[in-house]
Amino acid sequence: MDVFMKGLSKAKEGVVAAAEKTKQGVAEAAGKTKEGVLYVGSKTKEGVVHGVATVAEKTKEQVTNVGGAVVTGVTAVAQKTVEGAGSIAAATGFVKKDQLGKNEEGAPQEGILEDMPVDPDNEAYEMPSEEGYQDYEPEA
């Protein structure tokens, strides 16, 4: 019985440690998101679009440190934060509304985080759909 109880105690310690790591990862992701939003706020009209992409990228980098179902929630929060940063930029006159959601080359930025393969159960990952990809044929 002692062996059984000791095993359960060790398992509990492992769960607590994993929860603490997840909590730490979420806190880091939130900190990076805040950094990115402050970065966007300090940019001029020309830099705002690039700044919004930076927020998304920093958040995406930190999301990889967070495991399990938390990833889905962090990704949703990050996307809403990026959308909010863009709205703030438009409201303050840093950028025109028609410039939001495009990178410096004018290509749409939507789907940055949505296409990231995420499995809350950590069982399997699927690649994003290939609808947006084109076949590449090298020139002879």
Rank of each mutant, 00 (worst) to 15 (best):
T81P: 02
A85I: 15
A140F: 11
T54R: 12
Q134D: 05
V63I: 15
T54P: 01
E110H: 02
P128H: 06
A11Q: 00
P128R: 05
G84E: 05
V70L: 12
Q62L: 11
L113K: 14
K43L: 04
L113G: 13
G132K: 06
K32E: 01
E57I: 12
T54K: 06
Y133P: 10
V40S: 01
G84T: 05
G7W: 15
A27T: 03
K58V: 11
V77M: 12
G36P: 01
Q79V: 08
I112T: 12
L8N: 00
M116F: 05
V70F: 02
E114P: 07
A56I: 12
K45P: 03
A78V: 11
Y39I: 06
K21E: 01
A27F: 11
M127Q: 14
V74D: 00
A78E: 01
T44R: 02
T33E: 00
K21N: 04
G106R: 06
T33M: 15
P117T: 12
V26D: 00
Q79N: 09
A11R: 00
E20V: 08
F94Y: 10
A107F: 15
K43I: 15
G25F: 14
E57N: 11
S42I: 14
T92R: 04
V15F: 14
G31S: 15
A19F: 13
K80D: 01
Q24V: 15
K58S: 05
A11F: 03
K43H: 08
T72S: 07
A27E: 02
E35L: 05
N65G: 08
K21F: 05
V55Y: 14
K96Q: 07
K80S: 05
F4D: 00
A140E: 14
H50S: 09
V55K: 01
V48I: 08
A89K: 03
S42D: 03
V55I: 15
V49K: 14
A69S: 03
E105D: 12
K12L: 08
N65F: 04
T22G: 05
K21D: 00
K6S: 02
V63W: 09
D119C: 14
E13K: 04
T75D: 03
G68S: 13
F94H: 09
T54V: 07
G14I: 15
E104M: 10
V77S: 01
F4G: 00
G67V: 09
A11D: 00
A53M: 03
G132S: 06
E130L: 12
A124I: 02
Q109I: 05
A91V: 13
A140V: 10
G73D: 01
N103A: 04
V77E: 01
Q99H: 11
T44V: 08
D135H: 06
M1F: 00
D115S: 07
A85P: 05
E13R: 13
A78L: 15
Q134F: 07
P120I: 12
V48L: 11
K96I: 03
A89F: 14
V49Y: 14
A30M: 11
A29M: 12
T44L: 13
V95N: 11
E28Q: 12
Y136V: 06
E123N: 13
E126N: 14
L100Q: 10
E130S: 03
E20L: 14
V95M: 09
Y39Q: 03
D115Q: 11
A76V: 10
L38Y: 15
Q134K: 13
G47K: 08
V16P: 00
T44W: 15
G14D: 02
V3A: 04
K45H: 01
K60C: 09
E130P: 10
E110P: 08
V16L: 13
E126W: 03
G132A: 15
K45A: 15
A85N: 07
G14W: 04
V37S: 07
E131D: 12
G73K: 10
A91P: 04
K12N: 01
S129D: 07
V48R: 01
V48T: 03
A29H: 04
P108Y: 06
G132I: 14
S129Q: 08
E20K: 03
A19H: 11
E110R: 11
G25S: 15
E126I: 11
D115V: 12
S9I: 13
Y133C: 07
A124D: 13
G68E: 09
T44S: 08
F4K: 00
D115C: 06
A11W: 15
G68H: 11
A69V: 07
A76K: 08
S129L: 05
K96M: 12
T44K: 01
D2V: 00
D135K: 03
A140S: 15
V37L: 08
T64A: 08
E57W: 06
V15P: 00
S9A: 05
G14F: 13
V16A: 06
E57D: 14
A78P: 02
E46N: 12
Q62C: 11
T33P: 00
G111N: 14
A29I: 15
Q79H: 11
D119F: 03
K58H: 13
M1W: 00
M116C: 05
D2N: 12
M127L: 05
A69R: 14
A91M: 12
M116E: 12
P138V: 09
E104I: 08
A17V: 07
A90P: 07
V95I: 13
D121P: 07
Q99W: 12
Y136I: 10
A78F: 13
K60P: 01
E137V: 03
V63L: 10
G101A: 02
A27G: 07
G25R: 13
M1P: 00
V26K: 00
A29T: 07
G41D: 00
M127T: 03
K10Q: 03
T75F: 12
T59G: 14
K21S: 08
A56P: 01
E46C: 09
G106A: 06
S42L: 09
A56K: 12
M5V: 07
V66I: 14
S87D: 13
V3H: 06
V15S: 01
K58P: 01
E131K: 07
S42A: 12
S42W: 09
G7V: 11
T81I: 08
T64H: 11
A11V: 15
K23L: 13
A90W: 12
V48E: 00
T81W: 08
H50P: 02
E104Q: 10
A30N: 00
V55F: 13
G73P: 02
A78K: 13
T54Q: 09
L8I: 02
L100E: 10
A124N: 10
E131T: 11
E139I: 06
D98M: 15
Y125P: 14
A78N: 01
M5A: 03
H50A: 12
F94S: 01
T33C: 02
V71G: 02
G101Y: 08
V70P: 01
A17W: 12
V15R: 00
G93L: 09
G73Y: 14
V37F: 09
D98K: 09
E20G: 02
G86I: 14
G106Q: 05
V40E: 00
L113V: 06
V55T: 02
A18G: 03
A17Q: 10
G14M: 10
V3Q: 03
K21Q: 07
M5I: 01
K43N: 04
Q62K: 14
G101R: 11
T75N: 08
M5P: 00
F94R: 01
D135W: 05
E61I: 08
D121M: 10
T75M: 13
A17S: 13
K58L: 10
G73Q: 13
P117I: 07
P138Q: 05
K34A: 07
D98E: 10
